[in-house]
């Protein structure tokens, strides 16, 4: 670098300029890929929601949306997905919180327990599919033990929703347990000690300290649980097959039919409806969290 102040400055300036260029080059491949494979085709697909079909390409306005919202299969899928989420998300939060609180009380083997609870997460769903079928299927253990006279395939009754939920929780609880445990461990022990001195009971401590201080964690766990609850299709497909009981006919089943029928109009409309639903949900919860955070 030059000795005079002026040249030093201009060299530095150049350096910073160049630095930004290099950084941009670092980010560019990923960004372009994201745009090419996700964002741009998604934006383009809005066009498909407005035309009648790929050949005639006549503008039909919101006709595709109104048709979609009166389509029985779509509504069934939407309803079942929403019901599944309404059951699964709270259960997948309360149960892991309870386990995390127990874990937080233990001194030894915390990480071992965490590992055990996390293990189902890494097991491919297909690897345990046969186990679940052997328990709940037509010739399964449950029927053998209790219903040998009139065996039922429990995976094809209205019970299948609870069974899939259980299997889903088995697989996904570990993730939330680890998150909650981290949140709990971040609460200073002194808070509880002060509370004890003030004469607070366990219930008071839970509602006034624990719940209050794990709100940020809860926010994250909620978002992750909502996202993950859409993954239930995997379990349903692997355990109950491509044509499951109608109480677990999910949005993905509807979408798969449209994929094989190459119906871009229905696919795109469904994707838009679903994404608006997700964005609204996240936005709503974000607002709630923001308000909560302001109360501190």
């Amino acid at each position: 670098m030059g000795p005079s102040v002026m040249t030093k400055k201009s060299v530095l300036k150049k350096f910073f300029k160049k630095e930004e260029t290099v950084l941009m080059l670092f980010a560019l491949p990923g960004l372009l890929g994201l745009l090419a494979f996700y964002v741009i085709p998604f934006l383009i697909s809005f066009y498909f929601t407005l035309i009648n079909n790929n050949v005639a390409k006549n503008f039909v306005g919101l006709h595709n949306f109104s048709e979609l919202l009166s389509n029985e299969a779509f509504l069934l899928g939407l309803k079942n997905t929403a019901i599944f989420m309404a059951i699964c998300v709270p259960v997948n939060m309360i149960f892991p919180l309870a386990v995390a609180m127990l874990l937080n009380k233990t001194v030894r083997m915390k990480s071992l327990f965490c590992l055990i609870f996390l293990l189902p997460l890494v097991i491919p769903s297909g690897s345990v599919a046969h186990f679940w079928k052997s328990i709940f299927g037509l010739n399964g253990v449950i029927n053998g033990a209790f219903f040998a006279g009139a065996p039922v395939n429990w995976l094809d009754t209205q019970w299948c929703r609870s069974l899939i939920t259980t299997i889903f929780i088995w697989k996904n609880a570990g993730y939330n347990i680890v998150l909650f445990l981290a949140g709990l461990q971040a609460i200073p022990k002194e808070y509880y000690e002060y509370a004890a001195v003030e004469g607070a009971n366990a219930l008071n401590k839970f509602f006034r300290i624990t719940l209050v201080y794990i709100i940020p964690t809860t926010f994250l766990v909620f978002i992750m649980s909502v996202i993950n609850s859409f993954k239930s299709f995997k379990e349903i497909y692997l355990i109950c097959g491509a044509y499951p009981h109608q109480s677990i006919y999910m949005l993905q089943h509807y979408m798969n039919n449209q994929f094989s029928a190459l119906n871009y109009q229905k696919l795109a409309s469904a994707a838009y409806v679903l994404s608006i639903f997700i964005i609204a949900l996240v936005f709503l919860f974000y607002r709630i969290q923001y308000k909560q955070a302001k109360n501190f």
């Binding site: 994201l34 090419a36 494979f37 996700y38 964002v39 741009i40 085709p41 998604f42 383009i44 697909s45 978002i223 996202i227 859409f230 993954k231 299709f233 949005l251 993905q252 979408m255 994929f259 871009y264 696919l267 795109a268 469904a270 994707a271 679903l274 994404s275 997700i278 964005i279 996240v282």
Partner: peptide
Amino acid sequence: FIYIVVMLMPLQVVLVPNYII
């Protein structure tokens, strides 16, 4: 923010642009 929005989208949604491209 684009990254986060895409990340939050369930597979059912992102499969559509994946398929189109």
